[in-house]
Amino acid sequence: MPNVHKDFHGCFNFGLKFLLDNYGEAEMEEYLRRVARNAYAPLIESLRMRGLPALQDHWQHIMLLEEADFDLRFTNDDTLVLQVKQCPAIAHMRARGYKVCSRFCEATRIVNDEICRQAGYQSEVEYDRENARCTQRFRKEAAR
C-alpha cells in the first residue's frame, strides 16, 4: 500500500507554476510530456498490451488511494469515462490555502494525451477547475 502524502499535490502545483512563470506554457507542456513518457512508461506498455482495461485499473487504483469522489465506467462505444466529482488534488490544495496554478488541470489533459498517443489511444478532458470537477474520456485511436 503506497503512502499517501497529499501535500505533494501542492509541490507539483508549485513546479508547474514555476515552469509557466519562468519559461512559458510550451516548456511546461514539454515537461509534462516527458513525465508521461518516462514516469508512466509501464502504463503505456500495459495500455498497448491490454487496452483500456489497463487504464481502468490504473484510475481505479489511484482514485481509491486518493479517496476521490468519482465514477469510472465503459460506455457502449468502448469509451472509458472517468468522472471526477471532486478532484482530491484541488480539494487538498484549497484546504491548505495554496493558490492553484491557472494551468493545473491542463497537466491532466497533457499527461493523458501523451500516454494515450504513445499507445495508440486518444483522450479528452473537460474540466471545471473552479468546481474541481472533470470528465476524462479514453478510446482507441481511429484507424487512419
Binding site: 505533494f8 507539483f12 515537461y31 486518493e66 471526477v84
Partner: peptide, 15 residues
C-alpha cells in the same frame, strides 16, 4: 491528475 503517490517520479523529472 498525477497522483501524490506518483509525484516523486515527476519531481525527479522536473529537476
Amino acid at each position: 491528475m498525477i497522483s501524490c503517490t506518483e509525484f516523486i517520479m515527476a519531481y525527479s523529472e522536473l529537476f
